[in-house]
């Protein structure tokens, strides 16, 4: 019974999420068994197609722990992809300098938004809403047409498979053994995830982030430099957005204006489903990882099912988000009563 008492809202939400993911995946294995849902590659594809989102959700989690929000991420991803494509294809730059410029762009974008939010005390929604339209508009200013990336080094990054033989292989029709594989993007995403986790959990900076989210006033009184911490959080988030955009681009290998539309909601939904509270102070990047995986599973369902339109992904995610925020709100109310 004592153990049950320890199961407060935040742990409970995380457990619901993990259970939901496992249940959904098992259901998928049962329903789509004939189509090969149980193959290890299907599971790995969740990571491959969502590598960018994992990184962005990690950044979003951090921002949301401080009690803020960033809805510009989708547009920043589109801008990053478009910049990469434009610099490499139209301007003939190398893949490495293009990537560096994009990452710097992310830092600057985060710096400006962070300054407006932390130092001028503007509402994060308004600032990042403006940022969202600004970045999307900039994408259109760079090019209104789709640019495909043909840079060899970039394609090499995108297409170099890393085989995982220990997960078992399958022999195809030609007699070649195919092992389950991942792309380098997955490794980058997971490394970033672990890094953010360690920073949040084991550094002074991370503690400050949680403290600010818990109560900005108390944090200020404790002598924490609230403004600077917030600024850093948004700068890191901007950087992660640009990096996430790069990973996203490795999947699509193109830049176009409509890219990554609705990405902001997927990132926010992943964080919220993973147990990050909208009010700030509580959150865990591994929870957000499960949020991303749930979104990926829904997408896989829709692909395997074959006849549903892709719009169902967005609607299901939105419904899940609504469900989880109502759940959070109920928990908060229950806590108040106690």
């Amino acid at each position: 019974m004592k153990k049950m008492g320890k199961l407060d809202g935040k742990v409970f939400l995380l457990i619901i999420t993990i259970v939901l993911f496992v249940a959904m995946y098992l259901a998928g294995i049962i329903i789509f068994n004939s189509k090969g849902f149980a193959k290890p590659q299907v599971f790995l594809n969740l990571f491959i197609s969502n590598a960018g989102l994992i990184v962005i959700a990690a950044g979003m989690t951090m921002v949301m722990i401080t009690g803020g929000i960033d809805i510009s991420v989708g547009s920043v991803v589109a801008l990053a992809c478009m910049m990469l494509a434009w610099m490499m294809e139209i301007k003939g730059m190398g893949a490495v300098p293009a990537l560096i410029i994009v990452l710097i762009m992310g830092l600057v974008f985060g710096l400006i938004q962070g300054y407006l939010i932390a130092y001028l005390k503007l509402q994060p929604f308004i600032v990042t809403l403006a940022g969202m339209f600004f970045a999307r508009g900039m994408t259109a200013i760079i090019s209104q047409d789709m640019i495909s990336i043909k840079n060899e080094l970039f394609l090499q990054w995108a297409k170099s498979k890393i085989n995982l033989p220990f997960l078992g292989g399958a022999v195809n029709k030609k007699g070649v053994v195919n092992y389950p594989f991942i792309y380098p993007s997955v490794i980058i995403a997971l490394v970033i995830l672990v890094l953010v986790f360690v920073v949040l959990k084991y550094t002074k900076f991370g503690r400050t982030v949680y403290a600010i989210g818990g109560s900005e006033q108390s944090a200020l009184m404790m002598g924490i430099n609230v403004r600077r911490t917030k600024l850093y959080v948004y700068v890191i988030n901007g950087f992660l957005c640009a990096l996430g955009g790069f990973l996203f681009c490795l999947n699509t290998c193109a830049g176009f204006v409509e890219q990554a539309k609705g990405f902001e909601m997927e990132a926010i939904a992943s964080a919220v489903i993973g147990g990050t509270l909208l009010t700030g102070g509580v959150g865990n990047v591994f929870g957000s990882l499960f949020g991303v995986l749930i979104k990926g599973t829904i997408e896989t369902f829709i692909t395997f099912q074959g006849t549903l339109s892709s719009w169902w992904t967005k609607i299901t995610i939105a419904a899940l988000l609504a469900f989880f925020i109502i759940l959070q709100s109920l928990f908060a109310k229950a806590k108040e009563k106690r």
């Binding site: 929000i69 929604f125 926010i268 709100s329």
Partner: peptide, 19 residues
Amino acid sequence: MKIQPMVATLILFTAGRGI
């Protein structure tokens, strides 16, 4: 439910066009 307006309306912002 006392949810921040921007997040609450974000749901329909993305899902609305899907509907």
